[in-house]
């Protein structure tokens, strides 16, 4: 692979907080702080994401699941010695991957966040937990959907019992939905610019 600054320049310019990536000194405190790290859940920790952005590894980074794993615990931001807003950079990169269409179609978090969750909330102005779960389970078709549901049923029952899951779908719209809709439209308009 060849080093190439063109990707980094695009990120610095277009991804939210992307310009901060320049300032990383590769100390590793972020990756060491990430609670997802010990689970082996990500391909790259934040440090490695930043190094790869600077090295020009566009496909590798934007196509990776690394920045979709962030749980926004903010440990990395708090500890980063260079003051990088790491959580925001990582989310910005994720969003940039969506915008550029580089995100893999199979990336589950991307699909959940940008499709299922989004559609659910936009429709009524409020999240309907049951419908959200169902949508997520059946995202890959009816077969996997059923097995997903069966797999999660105990969790669902537990959540129902402890009143963490409302089985009745939210009907109608939230109060002031019009205002909410206006906000969203404005945001879309701004983003298009």
């Amino acid at each position: 692979m060849a080093y190439n600054l063109s990707f980094a320049r695009k990120v610095y310019k277009n991804a939210e907080m992307g310009h901060w990536i320049k300032m990383c000194m590769q100390c590793g405190v972020c990756s060491g702080s990430c609670p997802l790290g010990p689970l082996g859940a990500w391909e790259f920790g934040p440090r490695e994401i930043f190094q790869r952005v600077r090295a020009g590894k566009e496909e590798e980074i934007l196509g990776s699941g690394a920045m979709w794993m962030c749980t926004s615990c903010y440990n990395c931001i708090v500890r980063c010695p260079r003051g990088l807003p790491i959580t925001h950079i990582v989310h910005g990169l994720a969003r940039y991957a969506v915008e550029t269409g580089k995100v893999k179609p199979t990336q589950p978090t991307a699909r959940f966040a940008t499709k299922v969750f989004w559609n659910n909330i936009v429709k009524t102005g409020r999240v309907g937990e049951a419908a959200l779960s169902m949508h997520l389970y059946f995202i890959d078709g009816i077969g996997t959907g059923i097995s997903n549901v069966l797999e999660m049923k105990d969790v669902a029952l537990g959540m129902l019992k402890s009143k963490r899951l409302n089985p009745i779908p939210f009907r109608g719209k939230i109060k002031g939905y019009d205002g909410f809709k206006k906000m969203l439209d404005k945001a879309f308009e701004l983003e298009k610019k």
């Binding site: 590793g28 405190v29 990756s31 010990p38 920790g45 440090r47 490695e48």
Partner: peptide
């Protein structure tokens, strides 16, 4: 001591 070895990418404890 918990962190990431930046030369190996391995998270240590």
């Amino acid at each position: 001591v918990i962190g990431e070895d930046t030369l190996t990418g391995v998270r240590y404890r």
